[in-house]
Every structure is written in C-alpha cells, then in structure tokens.
C-alpha cells in the first residue's frame, strides 16, 4: 500500500521547520540568498533546497490573506519525469513499490542538461532540479531512508501544527476529504489538489493561483483541475 503526504495549508504557519529540517536531515548546505521583498527564500526550489515554503499575500474579497505552500515533489502515481528518464538513462528514476516514493538515483548523472530540461518541463509541478556541480538531478525522496526504517519523513516529523501529515494513502485520502468538508464550511473555494494522481495531497482554502503558480500542476500552460 502506497504512502502519501497530506499537506493541509490551512494549518500551516510557515514556520519553515519542514524546510530547515529537510536540509538538516539530508545534510544539504544553504545557498546564498538576498532579500527581494518577500519572505520566500530561497526564491525557488534548487539543487540544495528540496522543500520550500512559498509565501503569497493577497487581498481576496476585501480581506487580507497570507497563503503558505510547503512545496515538494508530489510523488506522482504515474510520474511523467520517469517516462522521460527511462529513455534517457534507465534506472535514473525509480518508483519504490512499497511506498510509492519516486526516487532519483545516481544514474541521473547520465542525463544531459537538455535531458534534464525535458524532465523538468514535463513535470506538472516544476520540481526536478539539477546540481550543476555533481550533475545529479534531485528532488524530495520521501525520506525513503527514514520511511523504510519505520520513521516518517523529516518534514512531517517536524511540522508543529499537523499541516504535513504522512501515512497510508487510504488514511490520508480519508483525512483530506474529512478536512475539506470542514474547511468548505468557511471557505467555499477550498479544494484538494493533486489528490488522485499523486501521493502528496494538498488542501487549499482559496483558488490555487493564490498560492503558487504550479500549485495544481501545469502542462503545456494549462492548469489541472
């Protein structure tokens, strides 16, 4: 039975415990950043930042809202990046049958920069990044080392408010539906994103565009439902 994340943005306080815990666990170094008029830093996912809390403030219906979106690989059930990668370097993207985790292996080194661009552009969520120093293509691996040893991913472990939950897919699906029903009472625009096709289900209270460009996935410039 696959595992899934349920990321409930209505509970997120953007404490960035997930972003930093991910780095600390994986030993990923910091990258140089600048203040650009936003709290979102680094500006985007990169080869050393596999988990990023995105910040977006808006005035919606006359009310100030500040949306937080803890972005990461969705671990697609049928990952497009794997289709590309299988052609370019077999074994570079694999799926762990036990957990459903999509994992980029050392074989990704064999993929050229152009090949990487192809992988990245087909990803509806704009997730893959390439480490220019090592040539590896990287992203969240669901903390497969922890999960295989009975632990939960570090981001979910760290999350103070239960905004990032991790568990059996069925449980996460049930939980997300239940939570959606509650949130809908106050926020009619609330919805679940990437629920049926991936193992990272997001709950948002407003239209996805108010969170992040790729919140609900884009292919050929068109958004997913």
């Amino acid at each position: 039975m696959a595992k899934s994340f349920f990321i409930d943005t209505t509970k997120c306080t953007a404490c960035r415990g997930c972003q930093v815990a991910c780095k600390d666990w994986k030993g990923l170094p910091a990258t140089p950043t600048k203040q650009r008029g936003s709290h979102q830093n680094p500006e985007d996912l990169n080869a050393k930042t596999l988990k990023l809390v995105r910040f977006a403030d808006h005035t919606i219906d006359g009310k100030v809202v500040w949306n937080f979106f803890s972005d990461q690989c969705r671990h697609c059930i049928e990952p497009p990046c794997k289709i590309i990668a299988d052609d370019l370097a077999p074994g570079s993207v694999i799926k762990d049958e036990k957990t459903g985790a999509i994992i980029y292996t050392k074989e990704t080194k064999k993929i050229s920069a152009d090949g990487f661009e192809e992988m990245r552009s087909i990803c509806p969520y704009n997730i893959p990044r390439r480490n220019e120093e090592t040539g590896l293509i990287v992203k969240c691996d669901m903390c497969i080392d922890r999960v295989s040893n009975g632990l939960i991913p570090m981001c979910a472990k760290s999350c103070p408010t239960g905004a990032i939950l991790f568990g059996e897919r069925d449980d996460m699906l049930a939980l997300s539906e239940k939570r959606l029903a509650e949130i809908k009472k106050k926020s009619p625009s609330a919805r679940l994103l990437s629920k049926d096709d991936t193992n990272a289900i997001y709950l948002v209270a407003h239209e996805p565009k108010f969170y992040h460009e790729y919140a609900c996935g884009i292919v050929n410039g068109k958004r997913f439902a």
Binding site: K82, G91, D96, E97, E107, I144
Partner: peptide
C-alpha cells in the same frame, strides 16, 4: 508506467533506504 525490472529497482531502492 512500466516499472524497471524488479531486481534492478530493488537494488537501487536499497541503496537509498
């Protein structure tokens, strides 16, 4: 999606896990 041959995948997973 066709999975990589089971043995191959397992070995790589083990690598990570």
């Amino acid at each position: 999606i066709a999975l990589a041959p089971i043995g191959y995948a397992k070995e790589l997973i083990t690598d990570h896990a």
